[in-house]
Design a binder for these strands. Structure first.
Length: 425
RNA sequence: GGAGAGGUGGCAGAGUGGUCGAAUGCGGCGGUCUUGAAAACCGUUGACCCGCAAGGGUCCGGGGGUUCGAAUCCCUCCCUCUCCGCCA
């Protein structure tokens, strides 16, 4: 959600900024609605004040033993007037809020111009795609060949876009998760969080998935209004909802491993092969709650924490700055990290690190007490994958494959694999 | 699942339908005293909205109702706690 003051005072600038995303914002209509709100609010408050004053005088008169009947008659009609003004005011308020909740975040000035993925800007690369010396297989061929990746079984149990893993491959997947959690908690100072996988609508509104992107979510059947989390960002960021955080508590650094559930509505036909795009996948998520002045330094730091995972796993990657049109709804600026997949012969997203500035904080009413002003002020929130476990598994399979269809285990994962150095082959 | 109790300011905890945004205590902040600190004493201390300001308005878990007027009465939902049952 954007600052209402900004929407009142800098409407043209807001419109221009949102325009960079290609977001059509009807500023004149918004201004008209806002002006109506203001007029109505004044009217309601004046009516309420008149009623309060009158009612108070009734109390005093009665305490003094006077006849209050004339006063009662005089006040009665004020209540009716107030009621109708309130109803109208409420309608306008709701309309305004609907618009506000549907506006994406303002972009940081450093976000490159552009409309699609193709306009994203490469910031840096790390590692060199390995020379395998043979024709690389993709993770599907490798996993199915080993008998450890089973899409048919998943289709039988559930349906399309699910995976069954067996044996050492399932263990490798778990090892990746353990490795990442240990790294972030022991080396990077994050506090491990275990959080619910089902959340309520308010949490999803807080982080920005609702009200606009309900189609991307799985809602559970039954009388409870719960949704499966599309990312740990939702429960973990909402830890600070409706709270005022002491200055010395910041920054808050949280890491959580959770499954993620996405309906992938609108992506029919995309990445249908393999486990690149699933309805259910595991992810280790980094979340930081910081002072506003620190958030851009934190974005660099947090992105670095995700990069170290890939460096330690020996996976070549590149970092890109998302362009204006490709930056997500709640983000002011986003870096994507893309890992090299020999089987596809290209880089694929494995992490997305965003600074949401005060966008989520405002929706969540998440604040800190600024010692400089003594007042509660909005925090900045950041999140990033550190990293997606399913895609990390794919990257390891394809980058560490051997000519005989086996997979070597990266050195840093050996302790988690009980010394198993290779799978298959 | 059954029975009961309760949700009030940073925390604890009062509050007869009118003078209650709310007693009191703790905590916080400022001051007096002190070489400094503690103690004691004095003062001060919620959030949000409109407004340049003066000022006005809203908020006692959420929503609805009764009333001229609701923290207080009624309905409903949510949450917490206790006991029983069940379970990992």
């Amino acid at each position: 959600m954007l600052d209402q003051k900004l929407l009142r005072t800098e409407l043209a600038a807001v419109q221009a900024n949102l325009g960079r995303r290609g977001f059509p914002f009807d500023a004149p209509a918004y201004r008209a609605l806002e002006e109506r709100r203001k007029a109505l609010q004044v009217r309601v408050e004046e009516a309420r004040n008149a009623r309060n004053v009158q009612s108070k005088s009734i109390g005093k008169a009665r305490a003094a033993g006077e006849d209050i009947q004339p006063l009662l008659d005089a006040v009665r009609s004020l209540g009716d007037e107030l009621q109708s003004a309130e109803d109208e005011f409420e309608g306008v308020q709701t309309g305004l809020r609907d618009v506000q909740l549907s506006l994406p975040n303002l972009l940081h000035e450093s976000v490159p111009a552009g409309t699609t993925e193709a306009d994203n800007v490469e910031i840096r690369t790390w590692g060199e795609p390995a020379e395998l010396g043979f024709e690389p297989q993709d993770h599907v061929a490798l996993g199915v060949g080993l008998g450890q990746l089973d899409f048919d079984a998943a289709a039988l149990i559930t349906g399309a876009r699910f995976t069954v893993m067996r044996g050492p491959l399932a263990r490798l997947h778990r090892a990746i998760i353990q490795f990442m959690l240990n790294l972030h908690t022991e080396q990077h100072g994050y506090t491990e969080i275990y959080a619910p996988y089902l959340v309520n609508a308010r949490s999803l509104e807080g982080t920005g998935q609702l009200p606009k992107f309900g189609a991307d979510l799985f809602a559970i059947a039954g009388d409870q209004d719960f949704y499966l989390i599309p990312t740990a960002e939702v429960p973990v960021t909402n830890l600070v909802r409706d709270s005022i955080i002491a200055a010395d508590q910041l920054p808050l650094k949280f890491v959580a491993h959770t499954p993620c559930f996405r309906s992938e509505a609108g992506s029919h036909g995309k990445d249908t092969r393999g486990m690149i795009r699933q309805h259910q996948f595991e992810k280790v998520e980094l979340v930081q709650i910081v002072r506003p002045e620190d958030s851009y330094a934190t974005l660099e730091e947090l992105t670095g924490h995700a990069e170290i995972v890939l460096q330690m796993l020996g996976l070549p990657y590149r970092v890109t700055a998302l362009c204006a049109g490709d930056t997500g709804f709640g983000a002011a600026k986003t870096y994507d990290i893309e890992v090299w997949l020999p089987g596809q012969g290209r880089y694929r997203e494995i992490s997305s690190c965003s600074n949401c500035e005060s966008f989520q904080a405002r929706r969540m009413s998440a604040r800190w007490r600024n010692p400089a002003t003594g007042k509660p002020e909005l925090v900045h929130t950041l999140n990033g994958s550190g990293v997606a476990a399913g895609r990390a598994l794919i990257a390891i399979m394809e980058n560490y494959q051997t000519a005989d269809g086996g997979i070597r285990v990266p050195d840093v994962l050996l302790p988690y694999m009980h010394g198993m150095e290779r799978i298959g082959g």
